[in-house]
Design a protein around this nucleic acid. Structure first.
Lengths: 149, 149
DNA sequence: CATAGATGTAACAAAAATGGTTACATCAAG
DNA sequence: CTTGATGTAACCATTTTTGTTACATCTATG
């Protein structure tokens, strides 16, 4: 296991849903999605819950329940997905606060916060330039034919 | 504890060394640095070891041992520091590989690798624009007077 | 109206990463 | 040869991440 794979899993979920939606408008189940992602359905539902809270997907209950996209794949950017996951930025400050009796210990957190803040902004901007539709197109370009979901 | 604080600690170390180096060229010990960062000296030495391997600091042994900067603070960028730490990017791929029998499972890793790769490149570029000297200046701008290290 | 099949969520377990700590061999100036 | 620090291994505690079991809840449909 490396870093956190949440954005990857979320994008995978949405891309798969977008592919399926090309043929059927029916809701898809977390179990079916889990087969493609290769993990437990609850893991999928947890992520779908966050995407739901962010308004990217709709959930349907009762008989014929499951999930559908709330927007077209072209209208969902990776920034939307990343924001839905409520993750922290890549760099954190000190685990325990530095020595306030030292000028460096006193001033470095605000200084680094500015650096990390603009970095976050940059990352968001970049993620906003890619949509689920683009990821799906790029993904499918590997295997021209077949679509044995 | 939040995300990983390694870049923060490394930048703190180098900034503190740069501040001290303005007055004395003598090596500083990991114990003294640890007082400013507020952690264990071994944690500092671990990070200094990586910075040493990257050629950013020099280590001195025997009597009057310690560490000195190998370059001026203006010649060390946050990209240099980040690279020295050999960390992974912010986003990882799947924890366990996705279903290769599904077109999405098959193609999404290369697709996302491209996205993450260009994102990494962007982050590196941005980090390269800030030097330790700039961070130190920004850090000290908080407390104009005093320098009770 | 009962049922089937799914969501939604809590609770727990396993594994990995992170930060901290102790211990100690090694080195070189004095 | 002594001293004080590096360099590194080994270990522990805490947190994070992922996976799993269990179960209450909901609703189209027979």
């Amino acid at each position: 296991m490396s870093a956190n794979s949440r954005l990857t899993v979320a994008v995978h979920i949405l891309s798969w849903m977008a592919l399926v939606a090309r043929k059927r408008a029916d809701p898809v189940t977390s179990e079916r999605i889990a087969l493609s992602v290769n993990t437990n359905p609850v893991v999928i539902r947890r992520t779908l819950g966050l995407l739901h809270k962010a308004g990217l997907v709709r959930s349907h209950r009762g008989v014929n329940a499951g999930w559908t996209l709330a927007k077209s794949a072209a209208a969902i950017t990776l920034r939307d997905v990343s924001a839905a996951l409520e993750q922290e930025g890549p760099f954190g400050l000190h685990a325990s606060p530095p020595n306030p009796g030292c000028p460096v210990g006193r001033g470095i957190q605000p200084a680094l916060s500015r650096v990390y803040g603009s970095l976050d902004h940059l990352i968001q901007q970049h993620l906003a330039r890619t949509t689920i539709e683009q990821v799906l197109a790029d993904t499918l370009s590997m295997t021209p034919g077949s679509n044995g979901i």
